[in-house]
Structure formats: C-alpha cells, structure tokens
Amino acid sequence: MQLRSPAFESMGPIPRAYTCEGDDTSPPLEWSDVPAGTLSFALLVQDPDAPDPAAPRRIWVHWIVVDLPPDLRALPAGASAKLPPGARHGKNDWNRAAWGGPCPPIGRHRYFFALYALDTRLDALHAPTRAELEGAVAGHILARAELIGTYEKQLASRRAG
C-alpha cells in the first residue's frame, strides 16, 4: 500500500496552511495498492520529536480517524471538518477529536502519517486514544503505509528586518 500527499513530498516540509501558523486544516492524502479484504482504514498522525527534536520526551498525537470506508482512496484538504460517512475522529493530544496541525515549540519536527488497511471495522471505538486504537487494530492489519512530513515554525526574528 502506498500513501502520499499532493501537498508535500515524503520527508519534505508540510505547507504552512496545514499548521497552527496557517489555517490548521488537514492536508490532502491519497493512497493506492490496497490489499484485498480491506474492510476499513484507520489513520494515525504523530510527532515523535516532542517537545524538542534534540531531546524528545513523548509522541504527540495530531490526528486519529477510524472506519474510513474500504473503497475510499483519498481525503481532500480540510477533510477533518467533514469526514466521509461512517468515519470518526479519535482524540488527539490537544484533547479534541479533529486534526491538530503541526505546531512545534522548537526545531524541525517529523510528522508520521500512518494509514492502516484493516480486515475489520472498529465500531466499538467512538473517540479512541492512540492506545485504544493500537489495541483495537492489533491482529487486524492487512497493510500499513507511511508518509513523513516535516515542519519548523517561522520565527518572529526571521520576519523582522
């Protein structure tokens, strides 16, 4: 399975529009080569570099989506505001059920977008945390695809002459 975004290249910078310094909307995503038997998809977006890439202390969850339909092959920009029918948000580390874009306090962070093709639906999960999602998908992953983007905040000193 392959995961990509028309908004940024793998290991490339995530455009500002999708961050806390922009519109903070979810970026567009596209996937292909889905395995036979896929009954749903789950999406997990995490930053393993929090709070400082030089001394990371935790993984920060930016977005969780479960029960994306099996025939779906893309999410448009801003899909967090209106998920496809049947899909649901999980709870991110801002304690909300929606996209929370990159907003690193220091340095350039990496953002891992992981898409799981599952042989089941996750109907029992209503607004899952990362731990709940990971527990529910264990033993049900047919394929996993990953896309990594980066982001570093623009500094006020860079904008000042």
Score class of each variant (00 low, 15 high):
residue 1 M to H: 07
residue 1 M to D: 01
residue 1 M to K: 01
residue 3 L to C: 07
residue 4 R to V: 10
residue 5 S to G: 02
residue 5 S to H: 09
residue 6 P to Q: 01
residue 9 E to Y: 00
residue 9 E to R: 08
residue 10 S to N: 12
residue 10 S to Y: 05
residue 12 G to N: 00
residue 12 G to Y: 08
residue 13 P to Q: 11
residue 14 I to C: 04
residue 16 R to H: 00
residue 16 R to A: 02
residue 18 Y to W: 06
residue 23 D to M: 08
residue 23 D to Q: 14
residue 23 D to N: 06
residue 23 D to A: 15
residue 31 W to I: 07
residue 32 S to H: 09
residue 32 S to E: 14
residue 33 D to E: 15
residue 34 V to A: 14
residue 35 P to C: 09
residue 35 P to E: 10
residue 36 A to E: 14
residue 39 L to G: 03
residue 39 L to F: 02
residue 41 F to N: 02
residue 41 F to H: 13
residue 42 A to N: 06
residue 42 A to S: 10
residue 43 L to H: 05
residue 43 L to P: 03
residue 44 L to S: 05
residue 49 D to N: 12
residue 49 D to Y: 05
residue 49 D to G: 01
residue 49 D to Q: 06
residue 56 P to L: 07
residue 57 R to E: 14
residue 58 R to C: 05
residue 59 I to E: 13
residue 59 I to Y: 00
residue 60 W to N: 12
residue 60 W to G: 01
residue 62 H to E: 08
residue 64 I to V: 15
residue 68 L to F: 05
residue 70 P to A: 15
residue 71 D to K: 06
residue 71 D to A: 08
residue 71 D to V: 02
residue 72 L to Q: 08
residue 74 A to H: 11
residue 75 L to T: 02
residue 75 L to Q: 08
residue 78 G to E: 02
residue 79 A to I: 04
residue 83 L to Y: 11
residue 83 L to P: 10
residue 84 P to M: 10
residue 84 P to R: 11
residue 85 P to D: 13
residue 85 P to W: 14
residue 88 R to L: 15
residue 88 R to T: 00
residue 89 H to S: 08
residue 90 G to C: 07
residue 91 K to L: 15
residue 95 N to K: 12
residue 99 W to P: 03
residue 101 G to T: 05
residue 103 C to K: 04
residue 105 P to Y: 14
residue 109 H to S: 09
residue 110 R to C: 06
residue 110 R to A: 14
residue 111 Y to H: 09
residue 112 F to R: 13
residue 113 F to C: 08
residue 116 Y to S: 04
residue 116 Y to C: 05
residue 118 L to E: 05
residue 119 D to S: 11
residue 119 D to F: 01
residue 120 T to Q: 03
residue 124 A to L: 13
residue 126 H to R: 15
residue 127 A to V: 13
residue 131 A to F: 08
residue 131 A to D: 15
residue 133 L to G: 11
residue 134 E to K: 04
residue 134 E to N: 12
residue 135 G to T: 12
residue 140 H to K: 10
residue 142 L to S: 04
residue 144 R to T: 10
residue 144 R to N: 00
residue 145 A to D: 04
residue 145 A to Q: 01
residue 146 E to K: 14
residue 146 E to S: 11
residue 147 L to R: 04
residue 151 Y to C: 03
residue 152 E to I: 05
residue 153 K to S: 12
residue 153 K to F: 03
residue 155 L to N: 00
residue 156 A to S: 08
residue 157 S to F: 11
residue 157 S to G: 00
residue 158 R to P: 00
